[in-house]
Design a protein around this nucleic acid. Structure first.
Length: 811
DNA sequence: CATTCCCGCCACCGG
DNA sequence: CCGGTGGCGGGAATG
């Protein structure tokens, strides 16, 4: 009995059209005339056309009661629910901004006005804007104002989201859920154990964080408001699901489960679930209006369930522009990030108790604080002398340039307006094309080319970029982004913030569609392949579900090529060493646990191997104490793993970015082909004998989150092999310390840099490659096919999912 | 009855 | 203390 039902039935308070315009709604009489405003208006028309009859019928009904008014003709009609739908509303909204070619003004959005024009309550506007914001199609400027960006950043955003999704292991999570379902159905109730085990393992839902783009990160301090709450975040996650799943179809049910912690028992949360679904519908409606997804029905054994299919642009891992180099990946930039020490967290949306169990590992991070203020200043001075070096990335500039420029710029390009007709093809093209084709806003000074475009695909690491300027309290993590070297920031939930990590892109192995493995048939494999072809060989590796061999081959190729441009591994190593020196030893161990390149949470259990409990406690503490000056500082290099350098190399974790420090090495080298990773995983279970390096890899993977610890590695032993710290206790501390120390650390680091660390490592290094080729290494992937057959739970590496017939019906 | 999802109360929160 | 935000869930409209 939460909120009582005070629900008064007065629903029609009405701004109703029928009545006279009270306040002069702008659109006073305008009922009938379709909105003139947009050229694209047609779309909406069509849409609305959807169910005319119903509406009409409805109308009459409505009129009857109290009428009197009908004096006039207009049939303004009553609304009919459909006409008021969010989707339609969203279309109207989009129409407004979408099509305007040059009008700069159009780029500003004033909620009130729009609400009025569209005649809807303000509340609804928030729904729309929030999801648009999650895609970075708009950003909030100030109180009632937003700026329209259109699809400019869409491609980047999607890439980022995809990456994030991969890091979150969404693919696996989905799998898991499906599996669970399956068990339920069939298996009577067979193994409960399994379930439990699973639950432990999995769930890492992580975070609640909001992924941001560099250019628009600002939210002025003041302006920035509520911590990101769900809708925004939920929307991003939802999108991530599409991007990572192979048939790009996501059912509401699954999405809801994932978005919820999913960890908890199900029963009780019926209501929670329901609410989640409701929200998803809201989001879905908006996304549909954007033509990013479309509703379909998935028919599985158990009946058909509502689902959505991604119709947006394919996300390509990256792009091209071989121009890069310039900025060579490496950059050292002083970043400062502030973590808000205090937590501002009040409540979390996702109440998962489990949360605590997870340790955060953010992708890159940074936590420093301080400089932030500078940044602000900088803003004022465009040409500020600050040399943020950021060499590579040019994005910095833009950043401070600030919104103004952006705005202006943005205003200009809006294209998009893809009219419905051409749809898909167009869509795909447009998305992509637009992105690339369209120059950034002129206003923004874009220093040279974008960062190099790694020819590799997504899998590759990207050059790290500059760091983002920080902002206020929210702690952000930056993700280096692929092309363009743009960095993205992720806002972490405050509580999690303290943990720092290094991000190494290399880790992002993509889980890759394991369709084969799972046994799920991808309906559209054809489609995929087509796409792939289309795109050119370039990106395919990542996505193609193709057969292992092929994929592999490609992967290999890629890596090679990539190697050229890659980073200088040696340097990286050196740096690392340096760091190590600096840092005190004790931490080292933990560090390994705590920080690892992937972002997001990893269950401590995994990390520690067993001693999760302790970890928990620490974690909590960490949160609380946020910053106390610690005496110890050591290095924050925390990210460094205790593993020896050589080992690291072996593992291919070469590039460590020490974000906190601001020293970033470009990861480059890595390019671990997704396929490989996959296979590797599989193989792991299978073969017990692994060479050290492999174990290392395993370890790494687990930590990273690629592999759920429990699942993949059959025996814990693996962990043991790893040279990691043997001390159990340390783990805990690390996070805490890290946090505390960051500031110091960063300083130290900087100092170091000044002194002797090579700043611009440019030479390419041959490193990574070798790793891959190493015999015994991951390459050996035999396994893909091997496992698929058995469905037993045993093979943990892969979840076996019964093949179900999946039919997608269009609607 | 089931699926969709509109509506708007009301808790927050920054100013 | 106010007004913008936006979680949230009842329950109406639709299917």
């Amino acid at each position: 009995a939460p909120r009582s039902a005070a629900r008064t039935p007065l629903k029609q308070a009405d701004p109703q059209p029928g009545c006279q315009p009270l306040a002069t709604p702008p659109r006073a009489g305008g009922g009938p005339p379709a909105e003139p405003w947009t050229p694209t208006a047609n779309l909406k028309v069509l849409i609305s056309a959807a169910s005319p009859e119903i509406r009409s019928r409805e109308q009459r009904r409505g009129l009857r009661p109290q009428e009197q008014l009908s004096g006039d003709e207009d049939e303004k009609a009553q609304p009919s629910r459909k006409e008021k739908s969010l989707g339609l509303l969203c279309h109207k909204f989009l129409a407004r901004y979408t099509a305007c070619p040059g009008a700069a003004e159009s780029s500003y959005i004033c909620l009130d006005e729009v609400a009025e024009e569209l005649n809807v309550e303000r509340r609804r506007m928030y729904d729309i804007v929030n999801v648009l914001e999650s895609l970075h199609m708009v950003s909030r400027l100030a109180k009632n104002k937003y700026i329209w960006h259109g699809r400019h950043n869409l491609a980047k955003t999607l890439q980022t989201l995809k990456k994030a999704g991969e890091q979150n292991k969404y693919t696996q999570q989905i799998q898991m859920i499906k599996k669970r379902e399956y068990e339920h159905e069939f298996d009577l109730d067979g193994e409960r154990n399994e379930e439990e085990a699973r639950s432990l393992v999995s769930n890492e839902h992580s975070e609640m964080c909001f992924v941001e783009l560099p250019g628009m990160e600002f939210r002025a301090a003041s302006v920035n408001s509520r911590k990101d709450k769900s809708l925004r975040v939920m929307s991003q996650k939802f999108v991530m699901l599409f991007l990572v799943s192979t048939p790009q179809i996501v059912s509401l049910e699954v999405a809801a489960k994932i978005l919820i912690g999913e960890d908890q028992l199900e029963d009780l949360d019926k209501s929670r679930f329901k609410t989640k679904i409701r929200r998803l519908y809201d989001i879905a409606n908006v996304l549909s209006s954007l033509e990013l997804i479309k509703k379909v029905h998935v028919t599985e054994d158990r009946g058909r369930k509502p689902a959505f299919k991604w119709t947006g642009p394919e996300v390509l891992p990256n792009t091209q522009d071989p121009k890069l180099e310039t900025t060579s990946a490496t950059c050292i930039s002083p970043i400062s990030e502030s973590i808000s020490s205090r937590e501002q967290c009040s409540k979390n949306l996702f109440p998962s108790r489990v949360k605590q169990d997870f340790t955060r590992h953010p992708s890159l991070i940074k936590l420093v604080k301080s400089i932030e203020s500078d940044r602000r200043k900088i803003q004022s001075a465009p040409t500020s002398p600050v040399k943020i070096s950021t060499t590579g990335t040019k994005q910095n500039l833009p950043v401070y340039t600030s919104k103004m420029s952006q705005l202006a710029a943005v205003a200009q390009h809006q294209l998009e307006g893809t009219p419905k007709t051409a749809k898909e093809m167009k869509m795909a093209l447009s998305g992509y094309a637009l992105e690339h084709t369209v120059p950034l806003p002129e206003a923004v000074p874009r220093p040279h080319a974008q960062a190099a475009a790694p020819s590799l695909k997504a899998a590759l690491p990207q050059p790290l970029g500059a760091l983002p300027r920080s902002h206020g309290s929210a702690s952000r993590v930056i993700l280096p982004h692929a092309h363009s070297g743009v960095s993205y920031a992720i806002y972490l939930h405050p509580s999690q913030a303290h943990t720092v990590t290094m991000y190494s892109p290399s880790f992002m192995l993509q889980p890759l569609p394991c369709a084969n493995v799972t046994g799920i048939k991808s309906i559209n494999s054809k489609v995929l392949s087509e796409i792939t072809n289309k795109e050119g060989d370039r990106h395919l590796a990542a996505d193609g579900p193709g057969k292992a061999p092929t994929a592999k081959e490609r992967a290999v190729v890629k890596s090679e090529s990539s190697s050229e441009r890659c980073l200088k591994r040696p340097q990286a190593i050196q740096e690392i060493n340096l760091i190590k020196k600096c840092r005190s030893d004790e931490e080292s161990l933990d560090a390994s646990v705590t920080f690892f390149p992937s972002g997001y949470f990893i269950p401590l259990t995994q990390c520690t191997h067993h001693g999760s409990k302790a970890g928990l406690s620490n974690k909590e503490k960490a949160g609380m104490c946020s910053l106390q000056p610690t005496t110890a500082y050591t290095s924050p290099a925390a990210g460094v793993i205790p593993v020896t350098a050589s080992e690291l190399e072996a593992v291919n974790i070469p590039a460590l970015h020490i974000t906190s420090l601001n020293i970033m090495l470009s990861p480059t080298s890595i390019a671990a082909p997704p396929v490989l990773s996959n296979s590797y995983l599989n193989s792991s279970n299978t073969s017990s004998a692994q060479n050290p390096s492999s174990s290392c890899l395993n370890f790494t993977l687990q930590h990273v989150g690629l592999m759920p610890a429990g699942m993949q590695v059959p025996a814990n032993p693996v962990l043991q092999h790893v040279p990691i710290s043997s001390k159990p206790g340390n783990v805990n501390c690390s996070s805490e310390n890290t946090n505390l120390q960051e500031e110091k650390v960063s300083k130290n680091i900087l100092q170091l840099l000044d002194h002797g660390v090579p700043k611009e490592p440019q030479e390419p290094q041959p490193t990574t490659e070798s790793f891959f080729r190493t015999p015994g290494g991951p390459n050996t992937a035999s396994s893909l096919s091997a496992n698929s057959g058995g469905n037993d739970r045993v093979s943990q590496g892969t979840l076996y999912i019964p093949q179900r017939k999946l039919e997608v019906s269009e609607d």
